[in-house]
Every structure is written in structure tokens, then in C-alpha cells.
Design a protein around this nucleic acid. Structure first.
Lengths: 249, 249
DNA sequence: TGTAAAATTGCTGTTTTTTGCAATATATTT
DNA sequence: AAATATATTGCAAAAAACAGCAATTTTACA
């Protein structure tokens, strides 16, 4: 059997089943495991598959390059996410909400940080799966088309059964007087359940949203333990939030 | 024998079998291996075949064009998905499994089809959210990094509480004798739960996977109600599956 | 047709590639 | 931390490629 032929076979097997073990390949192709290892190494160098410990996986399986679409005020959200990462310790159990700011947090989690991470958001879950040391648990339920998060009674019920160290949540609107408010009633119900499911709630919120409000109320501001904006904590725009028993980062 | 004639013969052999050994060619053409080597070298220089160590391979065989598409055998999977769509009626309640074939099904759902659709797969869920008339419910649980599907006890428990009209499932391996088998133990547990959660189970499977097997068994073939491959139902490759009380599409 | 130049072919010895094995190191699991 | 599985490295045997050369055949042209 020619080397090319064999490598073709390997590629085919990988594409077909998404993953293969070197030992299985060696047995199937009737060559030594060293040979298979070398073949896989070459195919990996040619970017035709991805070599992993003990085997190989297909490109589609491994490469989940996120198409970084246009996020509004992404730089500010990244600044917020970086501050939020500072709160995390190894073996923390956290919940990450949906929204672009929370998505940045998921994206910026250090690869060596060991976390157990719940989420309701499809995009956040996608990002979390790329972190080798994060165990991701998706809270299921009816998915909302626009926000791509799980909602509804079964989601709320599932949330009622967990208690995480930190939850990182976004909000549509914040105001010192009216607290956290939203456009959607469903979203409010879900966020309430999220806050209930956490020992400490951390609000991630760009400063543009400060001092705005809407129809439905999630909670008062004093329910929140920590608020993170892209501003320096001593910025005067945050003055009104300083005597509310909230940690501001 | 003329040189040209000989080279033509070599080309023919390569096209027919995709690969040839120099030694075989030398023997068949009754010339020395050096001559064959030189011929192949020339044909390679003319881009009529690809010379490799010990032999030659055809152009189509060698040019496994990288990044042509992320999905292996996508055309076949699309053919399968189209057949599967035919089973669906308005207001059906279905469950769509993970894997690239099931993903194609999600992708090809008609925009006007009204469905309630459960899934455990993140990519499938993403696709379903783009269908205006599909209500998507994600079955939560611990997410598997590689396959991007929810697994584990909470997933299996959630599945135990639903019963859909159809479930569309993929499999790693199928065999008339060994039934549906998988590479992973966890995957098997989940697939079992999926099958239990459905009145009828529909297997989506490209013909390449027929007559292959692996470690862990999901179920026997007769548990499946319908099997869909990209082949015509009367294709002889499907003969062995015809007396198993399965509908073949 | 005859003859020399060019091309083709097979042979020789040498170099390179491929492969499997064993010893050691690294990673993963228990 | 121990046990197991996988990787890496160096090495040697076998197979294949290569380069040079001589014998043979084909071609070119007077």
C-alpha cells in the first residue's frame, strides 16, 4: 500500500467519523502505530486534519473559528470583560448570561482557568466549548430567536435547582431609582431566576446604559453585588451609584 | 512497445485504479523498473498524474483540495436531508440529533413549515433559530466539547419526559448484525434516551457507514423505523437491510 | 542506404525515503 | 503518586530513487 493511499484512507476515516484513534487506524491499515502517527502528523502539518493526543479529529470538528461579527462598542465590552475575569478563581462555579458583553467575557476566559460554567446562551456556550478547562452546562428550554437564549418555564425551573458562586448578567437598562429593567417580560423572568440561582450577581454594563429605564423590572440595584463598567471606578458618572452598597469595578 | 504507447497504458492504469505501484507496472509492461520510473516522472512533469514514493496516484486522488468545504460528502448528506424533510408535516413535533447530516436537515427545513423541534446540538439549534416557523427547545445538560451536544444525566432525564413524533438521528457505524454502534459510551447513552423519547426513530446515514461497527452499541437495527441513505432504496448495497422490518428511503 | 547524433533502455553502485522496533520521555488516568 | 497510555527519539533494515554509464535502438540527413 502506498503512503498516499494510506493517508487518503486516514483522511477519509477522520472526515467520516469526525474522530479516530491511532491504534484503530494502525489495526485497520495493517501498519505499525508509528507509521500512522507519522502520517497523521504530516496530514496535520498540511492542515487536513487536527492531530490530538491518541488520535485525530476532523477540521470541522476542531476549527470553530468564530466569525467575529460587528459588535457595538466592542472595545468597551472587552474592557468590562477583562475586569470580570479578575473575579474568577480556579474551580469557581459561575453562570454567564447572554448578550454581547457576556459573550466577550466567555471569549476572554483564560485557557488555563478551570471553571464550571452554566449558561443559557447559545453563542456563549459555543465560546465556552473552546476553552479546554471549562466544563459547560447548558440550561435548556425554549430558545428565543432574537437573543439566542433559553427561556420559559423549564429554564426557570432548571435554574431553581442550582446555586452558583457568581452570575454575570447583562441588562437592557439600569437606573439608580428603577434598578435593572428590560424591554421583554420573558427576559425579566429569566434574569430573575438567574439572580436567584447565584450567591453573588455581577452586572456587566457599558456606561451608555446608565440612567435609562424601560417597562419591566428585573430587580433593584441593591440586589446586585458588583457592577462593572468600562469606566474607572472613580469616574463621576458613577457617583450616583456609589451609595447603594454595590461594589463598583 | 512504443514509449508513448507505454505511457498511455500507465495513465490508463492510474486513472482506473487511482494508484499503481511501479513494480506492478514494470512487470505488466515487461520493461525495467527504471523505465517505468522515468515514464512516470515524465507524466508527472506533464501534470497527468502524481508521482509518489513507490508508485503513482491519479490527479483526483492526490488533489484532496483543502478547505473545499468543511463538511465531508455534503452532497450526499443534503440528499439524505431532503428525503427526511419529506416525512415532516405541519405541526409535527420532532427531535433532531447532532452531527453534520442532521445539521443539513435543520438547514434544509422549509421556511414555511411549522414545527416544534427539540435538539441537543448547539449547531443544530443555531440553524433552527433561523427558521421563522420552528419553535426550538434545547435539551440542556453538560456540553461535550467535540461534538457540541448536550449529554449526561440531566440530558437523559430531560429526554425521559418527552415523546416526539419523529427523532432524526445519526450514528457513527451501522451494521446489519451489530446494529447502531458508536465510538463513545456517553454518546450511546444519549442516543438511547433520544430513541426512547420518540415514537418513531429515523436514521440518517450515508452509505459509506453501512457495514461498519465500533465498540459501543446504541441499539439493534429493528428499533429503527426508517433508514435514509443517499442511495436509491432499491440499490443492491441496501439488500442486506431489506428484511429487517425497516422502511428504507 | 549509410552513418553519426540523439534518444532510449537496462545495469551498477550510492543515496534517500520509508518503516518498524526499542528505549526514553511525556501525558493522562486512577 | 502510581499505573497506564501515548509521544518522541535514535537506529537499522528494506525499499525506492537517483546518477552515471554502456549497450541498443531510433532518428536525421547527406
Amino acid at each position: 500500500m502506498l503512503k498516499e493511499e494510506r493517508q487518503h484512507s486516514i483522511l477519509n476515516e477522520v472526515e467520516l467519523h469526525n474522530r479516530v484513534l491511532l491504534t484503530d487506524l494502525a489495526e485497520k491499515l495493517e501498519v505499525s502505530i508509528d507509521t500512522v502517527r507519522r502520517d497523521v502528523k504530516e496530514l496535520d502539518a498540511e492542515n487536513l486534519l487536527v492531530k490530538v493526543h491518541g488520535g485525530a479529529v476532523s477540521l470541522g470538528f476542531a476549527n470553530h473559528s468564530p466569525q467575529q461579527s460587528n459588535v457595538y462598542a466592542q472595545d468597551k465590552k472587552i474592557a468590562i470583560a477583562k475586569k470580570a475575569v479578575g473575579l474568577l478563581k480556579n474551580n469557581s462555579v459561575v453562570l454567564i448570561d447572554g448578550g454581547t458583553t457576556c459573550l466577550e467575557l466567555a471569549r476572554l476566559l483564560p485557557v488555563n482557568l478551570k471553571l464550571t460554567c452554566f449558561t443559557l446562551s447559545l453563542p456563549v456556550a459555543m465560546e465556552l466549548l473552546r476553552k479546554p478547562n471549562v466544563e459547560t452546562i447548558f440550561i435548556g428550554g425554549t430558545l428565543s430567536k432574537g437573543s439566542q437564549i433559553a427561556m420559559g418555564s423549564s429554564t426557570i425551573n432548571a435554574l431553581s435547582q442550582i446555586k452558583v458562586d457568581y452570575s454575570f448578567i447583562g441588562t437592557g437598562y439600569v437606573d439608580t431609582e428603577f434598578g435593572l429593567t428590560e424591554f421583554d417580560w420573558d427576559v425579566v423572568q429569566t434574569k430573575k431566576a438567574v439572580i436567584n440561582a447565584s450567591k453573588k450577581a455581577v452586572l456587566l454594563c457599558i456606561s451608555e446604559k446608565l440612567n435609562s429605564q424601560h417597562r419591566f423590572k428585573t430587580c433593584d440595584l441593591n440586589i446586585i453585588n458588583t457592577m462593572i463598567t468600562e469606566l474607572e471606578p472613580w469616574d463621576s458618572k458613577l457617583d450616583a451609584f456609589k451609595n447603594l452598597n454595590i461594589q463598583i469595578l
